[in-house]
Design a protein around this nucleic acid. Structure first.
Lengths: 337, 337
DNA sequence: TTGTATGCGTTATCAA
DNA sequence: TTGATAACGCATACAA
């Protein structure tokens, strides 16, 4: 019995010799109804294999219990973890996740957001690549929006505290004697990357560290490709946009005979699981990604309950020191290449 | 103007001085309608900022254009890629992805499947951990189901050709002189793991290779933890369940002074991006994970169009040989530990 | 070509 | 405590 022959409320009512309202009440546990009727209706419903049409229910009831989420890239472990936390929290409150991937493309993300909004009661934008105008359109939609890793007015905000993060990183490096640091950047439209650069610059100034920057990306490929530029620089320590980039860079350095950390220290943001198993293991900033997702749902749940947006949730990262960072070497040796 | 003040079809009709059906037809591009009216209605609709309620539309029209997907673990890059391919293909055909994560738990997966089925027009189970009985219940749902990496009757099937995969791996190893191989397994309820074991055993027999097996898991942690057992074994080559396990194992071997591949060869399944950047780079079986998702959607699309299930799509992997495998050493040196 | 009226499956309002 | 009926927002068969 395919979709067509589906058992409806009225079928149960007929079989039970009663009305749809009674059946509805019996099944939904209303109080103003006799226990015998409830038992009878339940029995009949079971026998017929009745399953309520949840779509019709939600349509009638109003807001869909679905949370729309956009991520730039599903293959990035950072977002996987955020989705995990978000999904678990939302699910615990009876909500589902509708997920869209923008492919790092702002225009596509905007299409996605409008599409998702049509089927969701709330929206979460992970590391949104939306333009300022695009974001305004998103916020004008008739659903509450939380941004993860992007600060925005009139919306929920959950983000990593990059100010604290950058300070932890640079203080660790200066503690090891590094005075010249190179930052290998991330995706162009990334707020996180902009924020990392901004806070690194600021902190570098206050710590009297010389900070150079080059463009990069988000994957191991980008890190490997940055190898030659890194080597040509006069930096004794490198900070990469994330661990994937860091691991890619480590790989290039190894292939080209550069000792880490003896000749060059490498460190990065995020501390995804693989960071512990790279060679050498990567010093990285651990952040509670799953918690980002969880907090996003908390904010949404509050908002849906009629509350105002709370203050942004800022998550402080923890520096996990591993073997990829060590004392700065005395002299920068320039190699031909 | 929040959810309440939403502009409906009837509002547009009133403002345009016409009826709902005319507006509906004008907006949906029906043919039997005069161009002037269309223009007028469109103008009014724009002015009012009308956006059709897609939920109501789909409710009225019937099947939801949503694909429900379950994965054991969102943080596993294998599934991320599958989701990518599936999402892109489904989206190109106007469908969205409703995603649920089972946490490797068969009972949770069953709950998830029933929940997703309530809101989807089709289901994709990625590496389902469902019991036989659970799977039967899933297939009894009024939506078409495709299984990725699990063979099942009366459903769509898209899978990696593990028979070919295992043969590629073992032939590569025997070509290097290995006669004794150890397999570090995956998650308990995993069909993929069972299939890898089955095909490895069979191929090992035909190639006269001695195959030992130990239990493992799916993460780097599991691989690292398997280190001592691996070392105690008499194998000259190790095959791990996937690259994450492989990378974890490499890390342990390095920490304990075991040279790879001089003393031990390591290889695995999947070839996720990180495999190319591990130290040493991992010999692994590349499979087109995104294509798995894409093919799953193709099967569903056909089925939804009224066709029968096609034959299972089997994807042949390609062996990517890197530096983690080399000639078998002559003697197995047993170390104290 | 346009308008009226019905129904999708459910819940909620109102009488009985 | 129950039952008939009106919504929810839209699309469409049918009537005009």
């Amino acid at each position: 019995m395919a979709e067509r022959g589906r058992v409806r409320l009225i079928d149960v009512a007929r079989a039970a010799g009663t009305s749809v309202s009674t059946v509805s009440r019996a099944l939904n546990g209303s109080d103003r109804i006799s226990p015998q009727v409830v038992a009878h209706v339940r029995a009949v419903a079971d026998e017929l294999g009745y399953r309520a049409d949840r779509r019709a229910q939600e349509f009638k009831l109003g807001r869909p219990r679905t949370v729309g989420v956009t991520v730039p890239d599903l293959a990035n472990p950072f977002f996987s973890e955020v989705l995990k936390g978000l999904g678990a929290a939302a699910r615990a409150d009876g909500h589902r996740l509708l997920i869209g991937e923008s492919g790092e493309d702002p225009a596509e993300e905007l299409r996605l957001v409008e599409e998702l909004a049509d089927h969701s009661g709330a929206l979460v934008l992970c590391s949104s690549r939306l333009t300022r105008a695009g974001l305004d359109r998103a916020l004008a939609l008739p659903v509450p929006v939380v941004c993860i890793n992007r600060t925005v007015k009139n919306a929920g905000v959950v983000a990593i505290d990059y100010r604290a993060a950058s300070r932890l990183l640079l203080e660790h490096l200066t503690g090891l004697g590094h005075r010249r640091v190179l930052y290998v950047g991330g995706p162009a439209a990334s707020w996180s990357d902009a924020e990392r650069r901004r806070t690194l610059r600021r902190t570098a100034r206050s710590l009297d560290v010389t900070l150079d920057e080059i463009d990069g990306g988000w994957s191991g490929h980008h890190g490997y490709g940055a190898g030659p530029t890194v080597l040509r620089s006069r930096a004794t320590a490198v900070i990469t946009f994330n661990d994937l980039v860091g691991v890619g860079l480590l790989s290039w350095l190894h292939d080209n005979g550069v000792e880490v950390p003896a000749e060059l220290s490498v460190t990065s943001y995020d501390d995804i699981p693989i960071a512990a198993y790279s060679r050498p293991p990567l010093t990285s900033l651990r952040n509670e990604r799953a918690r980002l997702g969880e907090l996003a749902w908390r904010q949404l749940a509050g908002r849906l309950a009629g509350e105002e947006w709370p203050r942004p949730d800022l998550l402080a990262p923890v520096l996990v020191v591993r073997a990829s960072t060590g004392p700065a070497r005395r002299r920068v040796r320039i190699r031909a290449h």
